[in-house]
């Protein structure tokens, strides 16, 4: 009897040890995943206005009846976040609630607009009601889409308070939307630019410390 207990005890310990090792390995893997999964940015087209340029002023009237100037040199505190959507695009429907919650979270910094095109105004009005975006200006304007060269939806454009185009791109997920805002706050337009800027400060840092050593 005693012997059986001892053996069972040892077996249990071995199992517990294996399980804790696995637990540690899993937490570690989750940690490494977090480090390695670099945030994927929005796909940025090369056509249309360039990042950092002052945008052309476009006057548009929203379906809610507001007349608004988008872009152009101006002095505003909030950046304009224009999301191009369409009633016929399934991804847009999923992305709109995300865009709304993001705009709420960044209420002080960005103002959200929706843009679309098409003849059937009634369809757009139903769409606005379906998505519950009555509080956000919704434009049906062909010139807006033409100017920013929107070819695929959903597409987002971020213009800062001074009217400068800060980022733009094809957005499919919350991560993509966040990447646009992130690129405005950091001033880095693309991941490629970030990687380049990462290697440069390292060099200048070593130069700096070399200079310190000399002095």
């Amino acid at each position: 009897m005693n012997e059986a207990l001892i053996i069972s005890n040892v077996i249990l310990w071995v199992v517990v040890l294996v399980l804790t090792t696995l637990l540690f390995a899993i937490t570690r893997q989750v940690g490494i995943l977090h480090e390695r999964v670099a945030p994927a940015g929005a796909l940025q087209p090369t056509s249309g206005p360039k990042i950092g340029e002052i945008t052309e002023e476009i006057k548009a009237t929203s379906l809610q009846g507001e007349s608004i100037r988008l872009g152009g040199s101006r002095q505003e505190e909030q950046a304009s976040f224009i999301l191009f959507i369409s009633p016929t695009c399934p991804v847009c429907k999923e992305l709109v609630p995300t865009a709304k919650s993001l705009a709420k979270a960044e209420l002080n910094d960005i103002k959200l607009f929706f843009a679309s095109d098409g003849e059937n105004i009634e369809q757009h009005e139903n769409y606005i009601r379906d998505l519950g975006i009555e509080n956000y200006p919704y434009f049906v304007s062909e010139s807006l889409g033409m100017y920013y060269q929107v070819s695929k939806l959903p597409f987002a454009v971020l213009i800062d308070g001074d009217g400068i185009l800060r980022s733009k791109g094809l957005v499919n997920t919350r991560e993509h939307l966040e990447s646009l805002i992130e690129s405005m706050t950091t001033g880095i337009a693309t991941v490629q630019e970030y990687v380049e800027s990462k290697s440069e400060p390292l060099e200048s840092k070593t130069k700096l410390s070399a200079a310190e050593n000399m002095s």
């Binding site: 804790t20 637990l23 540690f24 966040e178």
Partner: peptide, 23 residues
């Protein structure tokens, strides 16, 4: 091992919290 795993979870939590919180 459990202590190491707990510490790792604390780190993971930092990584998760560094994302923009959108409710």
């Amino acid at each position: 091992l459990v202590y190491a795993a707990a510490n790792q979870l604390l780190r993971n939590n930092n990584a998760i919290n560094s994302w923009r919180n959108v409710s």
